[in-house]
């Protein structure tokens, strides 16, 4: 285990650990933007701690699928976390997975969440699963093409190498194509993680919730793990945005100074993105469900333009 390997492994574990903190930060920012105090930053940890100790109640009609869903969801999302470079421009499972593998790996938890929603047999779970699958199938083309645009720029689909290439390019790497790809990825992130314009994370109103509806029947330890995985997914998307499209400052080597600087800059970038998310959530109201495909359609067009400018004809100078 070389130092670089250990550092990469450490950064992934840190990502998993600090994900709830990021979610707490976003809630706190939304509260201040809406002129109210809001919960303190570590409230998500308290919720997880409480959930872990609560009793698990499972519906009579549910099968082993409901019991297995939390572990598959958390396992899949955590494995995805190991593929994403944060502070250091390298990933612990470098050769094991690249951008396309990441997309499909994130599809596994979504698949099982949907099954979990249907398992209990209540109308809400089914509605959540059906809507979630519709949203995700509309989002996948935009996500894939956005990652392709970045991959073309870096000449490889391996996420670590892409981050390293972006870091080396510095400001030169910031061309219009990548800006469009970043916008597309941001929109897709909002849709995938169930943030406001697409799905309201804070509500329990049956008609509007998508992600919440699927985990309505989950309880206790399972619910905790799924919540944690949800927060981790948001952190993964924001880290991906930070590394691929905000190029400067990722640590190239493994010595302490570069690592410290890289980590600091990474935290700074994540806070900036958190502010962006909070701003978007307070500024926009929730879209009607059948407006979401148009929302994701714009994301797809943005990604298409990005890939066109990267691969076919350079837009701008």
């Amino acid at each position: 285990m070389t130092r670089a390997g250990a550092a990469a492994f450490g950064q992934s574990l840190a990502l998993i650990a600090l994900a709830p903190l990021l979610a707490g930060l976003i809630k706190r920012l939304k509260a201040t933007l809406q002129n109210r105090r809001g919960p303190d930053l570590i409230q998500p940890y308290r919720d997880l701690w409480k959930a872990m100790r609560k009793e698990t109640v499972v519906s009579e009609t549910a099968s082993w699928v409901t019991l297995a869903v939390p572990y598959v969801v958390f396992g899949g999302t955590a494995a995805a976390a190991f593929l994403v470079p944060a502070a250091l421009a390298d990933t612990p499972l470098g050769p094991a997975g690249d951008a396309i593998a990441l997309v499909y790996l994130l599809a596994v938890p979504r698949f099982f969440l949907a099954l979990g929603g249907l398992d209990a047999g209540s109308a809400f779970g089914g509605m959540g699963s059906s809507r979630e699958m519709m949203i995700s199938s509309s989002a996948e083309p935009a996500l894939m093409l956005a990652l392709f645009a970045a991959a073309l720029e870096a000449g490889t689909t391996n996420l670590g190498a892409m981050a390293r290439r972006m870091a080396e390019l510095g400001w030169a790497g910031f061309n219009p194509g990548l800006a469009l790809a970043a916008a597309a990825l941001f929109l897709v992130a909002l849709a995938e993680c169930g943030r406001l314009p697409v799905d309201n994370p804070a509500t329990h109103l049956e008609l509007t919730m998508v992600h919440e509806a699927m985990i309505l029947e989950q309880s206790g330890r399972g619910l905790g793990l799924i919540e944690w995985a949800g927060m981790l997914k948001l952190a993964i998307f924001l880290t991906l945005l930070a590394d691929l499209f905000l190029p400067w400052g990722a640590a190239l080597g493994a010595d302490w100074t570069q690592l410290g600087l890289g980590a600091a800059l990474c935290v700074l970038k994540l806070c900036a993105l958190a502010v962006a998310v909070a701003l978007v959530e307070t500024a926009t109201a929730k879209l009607r469900l059948f407006r979401v495909p148009d929302f994701l359609g714009t994301a797809f067009v943005l990604a298409l333009l990005a890939l066109l400018s990267q691969g076919v004809v350079r837009i701008g100078l």
């Binding site: 958390f74 396992g75 050769p95 997975g97 790996l105 991959a151």
Partner: peptide, 22 residues
């Protein structure tokens, strides 16, 4: 040409994370 992936390692990582959570 552009990258590699190994489903076995991904499965192992996911299983390890699930076991840790359990």
């Amino acid at each position: 040409g552009l990258g590699g992936c190994s489903p076995a390692i991904l499965l192992a990582a996911a299983a390890a994370a699930a076991a840790a959570a359990w």
